[in-house]
Design a protein around this nucleic acid. Sequence first.
DNA 1: ACCTGAACACCGTTCAAGT
DNA 2: ACCTGAACACCGTTCAAGT
Lengths: 243, 243
Amino acid sequence: MGKRAAQPRESVWLSPRPARKHRAGESELDREKIVATAVRVLDAEGDAKFSMRLLAEELHVTPMSVYWYVANKDDLLELALDAVAGEIELPSLDDGEDWRADLRALARAWRRTMIAHPWAIRCYGEYLNIGPSSVRFTECAQAVMARSPLPLKDRSAALNVVFQYVYGFTATESRWLEHLAETGRTAEEFAAEVTGSMAALSPALEQGGLLDRDGDRSMEELRDRDFDRGLHWLFTGMVAGTP
Amino acid sequence: MGKRAAQPRESVWLSPRPARKHRAGESELDREKIVATAVRVLDAEGDAKFSMRLLAEELHVTPMSVYWYVANKDDLLELALDAVAGEIELPSLDDGEDWRADLRALARAWRRTMIAHPWAIRCYGEYLNIGPSSVRFTECAQAVMARSPLPLKDRSAALNVVFQYVYGFTATESRWLEHLAETGRTAEEFAAEVTGSMAALSPALEQGGLLDRDGDRSMEELRDRDFDRGLHWLFTGMVAGTP
DNA sequence: ACCTGAACACCGTTCAAGT
DNA sequence: ACCTGAACACCGTTCAAGT
């Protein structure tokens, strides 16, 4: 991931390579199948272990066969990312909901999908992400913003701010969850360890209570609450206007 | 970067390995010098080209010598990240400034440093980032929040939300800047290309005006303005309270 | 205590050759 | 039109050996 080549690479979407199709067949190779398998392998093994060679093995094919359908690994990951973006559930826009409710639904759906495919949010940071499914998502978001009271010229900037927050929140959360999975610790154990390690460097931080929260809610509930809170603050601020 | 090993790795900071020091010497190897050189190579070559072998070459030493001082590449990157975190300019806290002004200054300083070391923000996403300099930063942020009107128990969550936004904004921005540098295009050319490519998939988006902004300000000014705006909205929302 | 060389088990990708 | 095998130029890291 993110290993940018020495010479720059054009996005698959900017200069699309033809998705070559074979003659007849059924269980034969084609780009769609390759991308679907890549997503499956990425989900199962993570992007650290994912390789063209492993993918080829899964396809029962030589590594180099894959290169007939995709130009290189980066292109493949960009295609895989857009495939996953296609899973994001878009809210229906004519349900009479407030624009904020719809935007929140959109943000939640994005987060849910990214948490389900932790490798995807790392791709999201690397690539332009302007494939068809991402565009469909952006279209929906723009339509929601169009119902906001914001002046027309501020809408896209506002939308960007919202999704920069969503991206930052989800990336952090996803990393945290992966750490837990890797080390096999519970969220509480891990939080205690991190706090302890920071407190060793700075006694001030312990009493600052970086990590203690209302005790009787699960970590997951707290994350959901914090996520929604950030959105709520942004919406409030946006409506209040900018000086 | 981000290639997580098959078996989980403990953070350098959670179980610190001793920074071995050699006997006398002057231009000899030691952990400090290794980390400083790593930062220099990362700045010059980017994290894609950075390797233990390249670093060793720069140090005029065998690749394996480095492993006497750091356990592995991930540890080294975590150390490099904290070194860079040490460059962040913290605002002085007794200048009678509003807490929002100080928090904004902190966010701006963080962003400035990360933009100056594009590889660093990718590390930031990967590692726990609880080294001494990061802790120092968090300490400062907590001290600023302590002057906010927010209820004590909400302060750390609010701080997290702010820096999740800052992280998302800066990561996106940094990626954008790298794309420009790689392809040698101007910001305007690149924006036009991306918009065009999206519009090809969705005519609705073009008239939606995803990317057109007040024409007479530079892209850089616009980014600064948008960054501050998001912060302002969050502050406004935070003060208005959560339902 | 520190540094080396050789080797292992991987990568992504090129290229010429097969069918 | 599609797929292969061999090879190239890399990785991070282990391990036994040197000083």
